[in-house]
């Protein structure tokens, strides 16, 4: 009896809700004002903790654009932003290939950048969280594309090294709304670490290419 009343009242609430259905399952279209509201709310409802400062809720031009266009900005909007970021990547002189073995350890490590990480701990690249790389590592994520045989397919030319280094440094310079974190731009990884990851991806001796 009690159960019936409960079910009935739950049904009544549902029916009332149906009178003007909320846009369940949809992705809302945003106006610039919505974005300002979200940033203001982030500033009010989040707080700095440990290494995670409030600068992290600020949006740069790239992220603002991606949020505004639901990650699908018109080409003419995206292109100048990509070009500006590409120009800003500080490519080191000389070879961009570091040590693939150190790169492997970085690819495995998902440490760093959370408020529970200490300022002096070495950050990892978190690569395996989203990508398949070496066939020996079966625990890999699938949010990103498979990078298996990345170098075997592309070779190790200067242009490929530059692309690989740049893509890790700032993925959004190549695809504005890429889901991949900007590992160099966000200061997660330093120059040497990105070189080591470049080697892990490109070196013919790296398990990625075996």
């Amino acid at each position: 009896m009690n159960k019936h009343i409960l079910l009935l009242s739950a049904a009544a609430i549902l029916v009332a809700g149906c009178a003007a259905p909320l846009p369940v399952g949809e992705r809302p279209k945003l106006a610039a004002a919505d974005l300002d509201q979200l940033v203001a709310m982030s500033k009010r409802d989040f707080r700095a903790r440990g290494i995670a400062g409030m600068d992290r809720v600020e949006l740069d031009a790239a992220l603002r654009t991606c949020n505004l266009y639901n990650d699908e900005p018109p080409r003419e909007v995206a292109q100048p932003l990509e070009e500006a970021m590409l120009k800003a990547i500080p490519f080191p002189a000389g070879s961009l290939m570091g040590d693939w073995k150190r790169g492997q350890a970085l690819a495995q490590s998902g440490r760093g950048m959370t408020w529970s990480d200490k300022p002096n701990t070495a950050n990892g690249g978190s690569c395996y969280n989203c990508h398949q790389l070496s066939p020996q590592e079966e625990s890999f994520g699938t949010l990103g594309t498979s990078l298996r045989n990345f170098g075997k397919i592309r070779g190790t030319s200067e242009a490929i090294q530059r692309y690989t280094y740049g893509k890790i440094y700032n993925s959004k310079a190549y695809n504005l709304c890429s889901q991949m974190p900007r590992m160099g731009h966000s200061k997660t990884l330093n120059e040497q670490q990105i070189k080591d990851l470049t080697a892990y991806l490109l070196d013919p001796n790296s398990p990625v290419n075996k």
């Binding site: 846009p23 995670a52 992220l63 991606c66 889901q179 974190p181």
Partner: peptide, 22 residues
Amino acid sequence: FELGQKLFFHRAGAWDFSCSSC
């Protein structure tokens, strides 16, 4: 609901993630 829905897709943070990223 509408605010939560917008926040779910809102990318920010050091790694540009929203809830929807994962």
